[in-house]
Design a protein around this nucleic acid. Structure first.
Lengths: 111, 111
DNA sequence: TTATTATATACGCATATATGCATATATACA
DNA sequence: TGTATATATGCATATATGCGTATATAATAA
């Protein structure tokens, strides 16, 4: 009995993961961990053209990962949900596990 | 001071997230939560062509998310790291948060 | 050896994604 | 009004992704 009836849920989860599957978007999320930042701040932090950063922000916005606040001419971005930080941390953990595992394998091959 | 020096790390994280950003791969991971499964089992569970499932498994394999064991003709897949389950659970949580938040907004709009 | 079952992969196609450039929009100020 | 600054977006292009069909590989049995 395939869980096709959950397909829509899996699609939503996949879309959320897709939101995190770009290095620059992860860098943006990382920058926002310490608090809200303007687009200009993020442009500087990432060292990418403003149009590129703005479009990544649009993607993060459209998927509810970040929220905005306008103050005069500047628009400040912040993370919409603290659990996003947790998710990124776990991905970090998984990655570290993989790296150390690969290192072990490499060590064994040296013998 | 942009954290460009971490770019490679972000690329790796993004690739890992990309691995999770397909509904069928998430369904495979979900199936494997209850223990190892053969390719045939997964084909049946997903209701997708064998070639499609096999290709998704290849992606999961290449990124160290699953591991395999051959027993005769069959190849059994299992999750390589229990933290992957945690990561998926958090994504699930974030999604639920989003849904309930959207529901709140919808309620407010009705007034 | 041949046949059968289970799994993996090459190819072509359609669609999605990220990017850079240029331009549009929005706010503030003179 | 006009100008300057901050941000968003339209367009064209290059690359990546997922899919179906067909075929290749591996293990087992006859």
């Amino acid at each position: 009995m395939p869980d096709k009836y959950n397909l829509e849920l899996y699609k939503l989860k996949a879309e959320l993961c897709k939101t995190f599957s770009d290095p620059k978007r992860l860098m943006i999320i990382s920058e926002l961990r310490s608090g809200e930042k303007s687009v200009g701040d993020l442009v500087e932090a990432l060292g990418s053209p403003q149009s590129v950063v703005s479009r990544h922000l649009a993607i993060l916005r459209s998927r509810g990962v970040v929220e905005t606040r306008r103050d005069g001419v500047c628009i400040y971005y912040r993370l919409a949900n603290s659990k996003i930080v947790d998710a990124c941390d776990i991905v970090h953990q998984v990655l570290l596990d993989q790296i150390s595992r690969n290192r072990e394998i490499a060590e064994k091959l040296k013998v």
